[in-house]
Design a protein around this nucleic acid. Structure first.
Length: 291
DNA sequence: AACATGTGCAACCGCCATTGT
DNA sequence: AACAATGGCGGTTGCACATGT
């Protein structure tokens, strides 16, 4: 998909004012979508000379582009290790987790998703996650929404990954690059929440009779994440006695689709982008209203 | 079939930090 | 020390395509 852009006013990383009109060379700069020829020139030049010093690179390569534009094109599109295609559930989970930790630090988040660019992650967040917040009529940065993410989406993603795993869901962490609980600053909004699930209204995806009156302190997301993933590292949920799934024990299983069952129960289909109107089950709405 | 609306995403914008002179 | 050039980042835009009516 290619598209043009409006005529902007920045060349060589600088802007010009009406008092300092662009030079003839500046006027010659190309904007908008890159052509195949330009891509080839850029790739060949970088293959021969390496990347960096983008402004001189653009000049020396004969590209009528700003250095910034070349850099962006290379990093977001042409780099050989750029991964394209759907964001996997594992990646989705990681994005949710890391965003809860770092906020809109897209480049930092991208460092933990090999092959994914900050631009892609940012786009994912804006198009998918923010859309959900809108559907729930709450702000994406609100505690409500963060709790929905933490207690509904993430466990469901985990369950989905687990259900799908023959392939290890922990594969994404094989490089050991993902910081886990304890190595990040506390996130104030996530520290002290209390969840009071209603047994009457939370049984859509399963049955539970022992959760009445249960109160759970909200663990930091990373703790849930580590716990849940810890339970999956061996490929199976090892605990017959529920000790391992301490964070997703209790009322969480009620919200989760049964393993091997329909893992899409009430879960927005992140992967396929099926974000219809009825994404939210009654329990989701109920959950959201508790905050 | 034609039009309207929604969605995804590449590319640009503007600011700030760093580096060089 | 001051200024300019450059790199990097988060935010925003707008077009092509998909989907709905």
């Amino acid at each position: 998909m290619q598209m043009g852009r409006g005529v902007g006013a920045e060349v060589h990383g600088r802007t010009w004012s009406s008092a300092t009109p662009p030079s003839e060379e500046d006027m010659d700069l190309r904007r908008g979508p890159w052509t195949v020829e330009e891509d080839l020139i850029l790739m060949n030049y970088i293959a021969a000379h390496g990347e960096g010093r983008w402004n001189s690179l653009a000049r020396c390569a004969g590209l009528k582009r700003t250095g910034k534009s070349c850099r962006l094109r290379w990093l977001n599109y042409l780099r050989p290790d750029v991964r394209r295609g759907n964001i996997t559930p594992e990646e989705q989970l990681l994005i949710l987790e890391l965003h809860s930790r770092w906020g809109n630090r897209w480049s930092k988040i991208a460092q933990h998703l090999p092959g994914r660019t900050d631009n892609e992650i940012k786009n994912y967040w804006r198009t998918r996650v923010q859309k959900h917040a809108k559907q729930l009529q709450c702000d994406v940065n609100s505690k409500q929404f963060k709790d929905v993410m933490r207690y509904l989406w993430m466990p469901r993603l985990i369950e989905r990954i687990r259900a799908a795993s023959g392939s290890s869901p922990a594969a994404i962490y094989q490089n050991g690059s993902v910081p886990m609980a304890g190595d990040h600053p506390a996130e104030p909004g996530f520290e002290a929440g209390q969840v009071k699930p209603s047994p009457e209204t939370s049984s859509a995806a399963g049955s539970s009779s022992d959760s009445a009156g249960m109160h759970f302190s909200s663990p930091p997301i990373a703790d849930c994440f580590a716990e849940c993933y810890g339970g999956m590292q061996g490929g199976e949920n090892k605990n017959g006695d529920g000790t391992h799934d301490v964070q997703i024990g209790g009322w969480w299983p009620e919200l989760l689709p049964s393993p091997g069952g329909n893992s899409n129960l009430g879960l927005p289909d992140f992967e396929q982008g099926a974000w219809g109107e009825n994404l939210w089950s009654v329990e989701d709405i109920w959950f959201q209203q508790q905050f």
